[in-house]
Design a protein around this nucleic acid. Structure first.
Lengths: 407, 407
DNA sequence: CTGTTAGCGCTTTCAT
DNA sequence: ATGAAAGCGCTAACAG
């Protein structure tokens, strides 16, 4: 029924071992023989059996990328960059795909579309498409071990799912695992993660942390790329303080997440350095509210903050998405941004520059970080000294922040 | 070195076959024996060897979800929903994850955080985390075949990568494959895809299309969930026409994509039905510009449209992301939205309601569609009659559209 | 450079 | 209800 290696071998009149060798390209094979084998592969439309191959070789070409929320561009950008780096560059034209300057085909007879910006890519796509006929299967099978299958796994922020995915990946003998985003600070979970990652590392799986600090006391990870959340947050609050703000509300992310804690710490550092006490309401409760990294959480929390302390002149949000909700809340209260209340975010996601007013935020090089993590996972790039690299976070002061109303 | 099935069998004093049976739970095993085996599994911290298992059983628990752009929430939302449906619901608290009403742990001593909205989830997370100790490995290994590994693969819109991923998944003998988003209409690619999907189906892989029309003349797919892009686009343009617009610019998506074509067709249907000719510039060229589904494409294209035809009173964008860029361009031209120019999008992504002014768009039930696709992939839900279901698209008229300046 | 020979670790009849 | 044995399809020594 299904074509196997020996079928190919028989057709090419060589031994199975030889076929395996040309397919893996990791062993010298006579050019003539290789030709014959390749032809047989194409003719029979042979597709390598992954499980069999992985079993025999005790390794697989699976690379897992774990994200907390796949619907959040924060993760999508990192994961996409990593995946591009891992999955091969052949057709990696992601942001340009489909760009075209001629009219639409078929029914779109009247579409004399004009190139938007960079034109001229018109024919290239059709060309490459043509080359990707069914022969593609052979081509791919023929590729050397470099053909990794980069996949992203969505934990939804759930610690159990994180562990479950790690186990599943471990089962598959994954070549590498990239963990993105902040980690949960629950002791039990940290311990479970440490154990699990150590096991993965033992089994030869490369572990890379991206946008996440190294696990305390663990060296299982090949490398950790940590964002300078603390520094970025500090600079952001310094910016607000410089503008003259003294009563700043803070819509934090979920408690027990490293990202949340670091950003909060940076915020407090700036306050402390300036000798400004943390904002509190009439009851003396700090004006810091925790919630998930969602637009709705930002909305609700900001409404609450504004009720508890109408004298607030600025709201710092856990990230840009939360800031969007914060803006909506401020507006709903009939207040202007930034005239009445300044609002700031974090991450500098693509939509932030288009917000009205443009959102002041802290830029994280998500794409670069993801790409680097991908290379680290591939073993293409050397790990940073000490296994840990801190990635800078740059303040982006825009229109959503200004001097307070009564400076 | 690594623990195998027979190690477990030896420790439990049973045969490997028995261990396999309790692990797969698909065969009667005495309760006492099962207990013994499960204990051995935990004690030895055994993790099933996926490749070996897949090889022997000729199936795997891998489910691939292909997306065109993982950084785009349009795909993230569908993929996340599908993955949740497939990956098991245990910790599926995605949007609520980390919600917490108590202060941050550790250094966050002063954070008397207040619950944002729904509170009370404080202790539950820690509880579940505690249960997810290393024993988790055993738990997972013990689960019946239901434990699928749902992974998302980012094609970046490249037809080669699409085919490559399909081949890679074919190699892994994937249990199912979900293709999301519009398809490329290139004949060569369609043929290659048809062949490839037929092969996957032959090999027992379930193929599901989500947000994509069925392949012409192919019945490889278990089911196709198609969005009513044409109908949605028609209603959107009807809305604009009803408002009084007669000169409407159109920023289309990449040509040769089904989504692009259908939306454009719906737009033209509405125009034709109202007897309104397609807008053209002084040179008689249609005011339709093609470009990728990106913010920048929308920005550039709109700038061009506005130059070529300053008398435009409305701009319809390929989707919300493109619309964001269109808004930026309109504003840069010193024009007001919607007073001078109305702008509309498509998809109703989360950020659209927060745009200023709130974006008029067409709502696509992305989450529902993704979840349904996930169930279809799992075989949990019966395919729609005929294998094809059309999913409605609802007009969301908001503030970014209004009567033209000189009605 | 190529063929031979053993397994990799698990599932699954077929017995018992 | 459990055990024994035969592979699943491929890779990796080891010869030659």
């Amino acid at each position: 029924m299904t074509v196997t290696l020996s079928d190919v071998a028989a057709r090419a009149r060589v031994s199975p071992a030889t076929v395996s060798r040309v397919l893996n390209g990791n062993y010298p094979v006579a050019a003539a023989t290789r030709e014959r084998v390749l032809r047989a592969v194409d003719e029979l439309d042979y597709v390598l059996n992954g499980p069999a191959s992985s079993l025999a070789a005790a390794t697989s070409d699976l690379v897992g990328i774990l994200v907390n929320d796949i619907a959040d561009p924060f993760f999508g950008i990192m994961a996409g960059a990593a995946q591009t780096e891992i999955g091969g560059q052949e057709g990696a034209v992601a942001p340009e795909s489909g760009r075209q300057s001629t009219g639409a085909a078929g029914t779109a007879g009247g579409t004399a579309g004009t190139a938007t910006a960079t034109g001229g890519a018109a024919g290239s796509m059709a060309g490459t498409v043509g080359a990707a006929s069914p022969v593609g299967a052979g081509r791919v099978a023929g590729r050397a071990g470099s053909e990794k299958l980069a996949v992203v796994c969505n934990t939804g922020g759930s610690p159990e799912r994180e562990l479950t995915y790690l186990t599943l990946l471990q089962r598959q003998r994954a070549a590498a695992v990239v963990l993105t985003g902040g980690a949960l600070e629950d002791p039990g979970h940290i311990e479970a993660m440490t154990t699990k990652l150590a096991k993965l590392a033992d089994a030869g799986t490369r572990v890379v942390l991206c946008g996440r600090p190294p696990l305390p006391g663990s060296d299982a990870a090949v490398a950790a790329l940590a964002f300078d959340n603390r520094g970025g947050a500090r600079r952001l609050t310094e910016h607000l303080l410089a503008l003259g703000h003294r009563r700043i509300g803070y819509v934090a992310g979920p408690a027990e997440r490293t990202t949340t804690r670091h950003r909060l710490e940076g915020h407090r550092e700036a306050l402390a350095a300036a000798g400004v006490p943390e904002a509190r309401d009439a009851q003396g409760r700090p004006l810091t509210v925790h919630g998930p990294y969602t637009r709705d959480a930002g909305y609700t929390a900001t409404l609450e903050l504004l009720s508890r302390a109408p004298e607030l002149t600025a709201v710092v949000a856990a990230n840009d998405t939360v800031a969007l909700g914060a803006c909506a809340a401020v507006r709903e209260r009939g207040l202007r941004i930034p005239a009445d209340v300044s609002v700031a975010g974090f991450d500098d996601l693509p939509f932030s520059v288009d917000a009205v007013p443009a959102l002041t935020t802290v830029r994280l090089p998500l794409h670069e970080a993801g790409a680097r993590a991908g290379r680290l996972a591939m073993g293409t790039e050397a790990p940073p000294p000490g296994g840990v690299a801190t990635i800078g976070a740059e303040l982006k002061a825009r229109e959503s922040t200004a001097a307070p109303r009564q400076a």
